[in-house]
Structure formats: structure tokens, C-alpha cells
Amino acid sequence: MDRRLALPAFAGAALVIALAASAPWLKFVFTIALAKGLAVTGILLLLRAGQVSFGHALYIAVGAYTVAFTRPHVGEMLLLLPLAAAAGTIVGLAVGLFVARYRDIFFGMLNLAFSMVFYSLLEKLYEYTKGTDGIRVARPTIAGMALERVDYEWTMLIGGIALALALGWLASRFLASPLGQALPAIKTRETRLEFAGISAKRVLLVAYVISAALAGLGGGIIACTTLHVTPLLSYWTHSGELVFIAILGGGGSVLGPYLGAIVYELVRVYAAAAFPDGWQMILGAVLLLIILFAARGLWGIYEDLVLRKGRRA
């Protein structure tokens, strides 16, 4: 990762840890934000290709329910999380083989449809999923250690930060690689890829499966943090939330998703409680404003304020 990313990444990580140390309840909020940041990184890859999925909460739910279903048999988080990511990958590949044939409207809406089908199955197949009651997840061990609540929460947060840094670095490498650089071609004119001997569908499929794996992993972390999973995880509002965070953070950098997710979760803790029935409306209005007036999101604002000014000096 180049210095322009590494510096704010480590500074941000330090700030998150400092804030969490000063206000204990923030550990939970930040861990959830980092988990969502992972999923939003996947949304960002798809947005690079000009595609938007209104159904990626599906993969969050797949990851979370994988943890919930296997937790009675597997007690170790270092196994549970890879399983969650693997489940996301497998479902992502199956769905992706179908949806990667489509673009734009179809791509967005087919994803929405798949996630809503999954939601209704989670709700209706009570025998396996306990329906809307959801499933409790016993706190797993971490590297063989059964931790007390405070230690567990700290480990989750630090682990989440480490994962975010590592995967953020990998994502930036991916975006710079030929495959990542080919993504924008899908947005503008994908026949150019075909004439270079490359299947545009396969390029999109790779990005899609990566995004599903990231969301699956994020879902696993969410299940291990909230210790309770419900069908609501795959409801459309949560897919919308991921898209919202991606746009809020801005598509210009792999740090955008984490910046967006942390700001979003902090605001949500207060605002969603104050306006439970108006929260989506606020999100929708802010989304409209960003799209119409500040298309590069928070990261774009950061670039304008800090990087441009720094370069001029």
C-alpha cells in the first residue's frame, strides 16, 4: 500500500483503539463497523465495474448463519470465520454464475430478489432457523482460549482491525492488478475486453465471488460479535445499508468503506434510536444528496481537504 493510504490507515486504526479504550461500549460498535467495512469493500469492487448489488446482505446472512449452525459443533473462532467466508464464496459462486451474465438493472434487481428469497426462507423454515426468533450463538474460543466478555470484545476489535488492514491492502493490490484494472472497462464498454481476448463475464464473476467471500466473512464476524442471528440480516434494508456506506465512504479508495462504515455506525447508534421509523428516509435523503452533489463521498472530501492541500504546500 502506498504511503498516502498506509498513513491514514494506521492513524485511523490507532484512533479507533483510543476511542474504544475511552468509551467501552464503542468496542462493539467499531467491530460491527469493521465487519460491514469488509462487506462494503466487496460492493466497492462491483461499483468499479459500474454494477450495484441490492442484495449483498444475503452473503452477510450466509456467513452469520454458517457460524450459528456450526457453532454447536465447532467452538473455535479461527475455524468459524474461515467457514463463514467459505460459505459466502460457495453461495457467491453459485449465484454469481447466474447474475454475472447480467448488467445494470438486472444485476441489481436479481441480487435483491435472491436476498429476499433467502430472507423469506430463513423466516419460514422455522424447524431449522427458529424463524424470526433467530439463533443464539455461544461465545466461541479464540485460539483455544475461552475469554471473558471484556477481553473477548477487545480481541474481536483488534482482530477486526488487523483483518481490515490486511484485506484492505490485498484489495488495493487487486485493484492495481490487471484484473482489477479491467473492472472499469465493464462499466464503459466491455466489448473492448472481448477484443483483448478476455471474458468480461469472468472478470465480473471473479469480483462477485470475492465480494461474496468478504461479505460472508463480515457476516461471520457480526455473528461472533452480536452472538445472535436473525433473518433480518438478509433483509433489503441491510443490503441498502451496504450500498449506502459504499457511496458515503466514496469509491476512490479501499479505505473509503471503513471510513464510511465507522461514521455510519456512530451516527446510527444515536440517530436510529431517535428516529426508528424515519431512519431509512434519512439515509435515502443523504444518499440522494451525496450522489447529486458530492459523488466522491467522505474519502473524496478527505482528499480535497488533506491531500490536495498537502500537495500544494
Binding site: L47, G50, Q51, V52, F54, R103, D104, I105, G108, K187, T237, G240, V243, I247, D277, G278, W279, Q280, M281, L283, G284, A285, L287, L288, I291, L292
Partner: peptide, 22 residues
């Protein structure tokens, strides 16, 4: 771009859903 058009109507959707609840 198509993606922006989709996002805009999705934002409208979020707004209208809550207007119903309110």
C-alpha cells in the same frame, strides 16, 4: 450512468418506505 440512476431510485425507495411508516 446506469449505476447512478439505479442508486437514485433506490434512495427514493428508502425515503418512500419510511414515509409510509411515519
Amino acid at each position: 450512468e446506469h449505476v447512478l440512476q439505479l442508486l437514485v431510485t433506490f434512495a427514493l425507495f428508502m425515503i418512500l418506505e419510511d414515509i409510509q411508516k411515519l
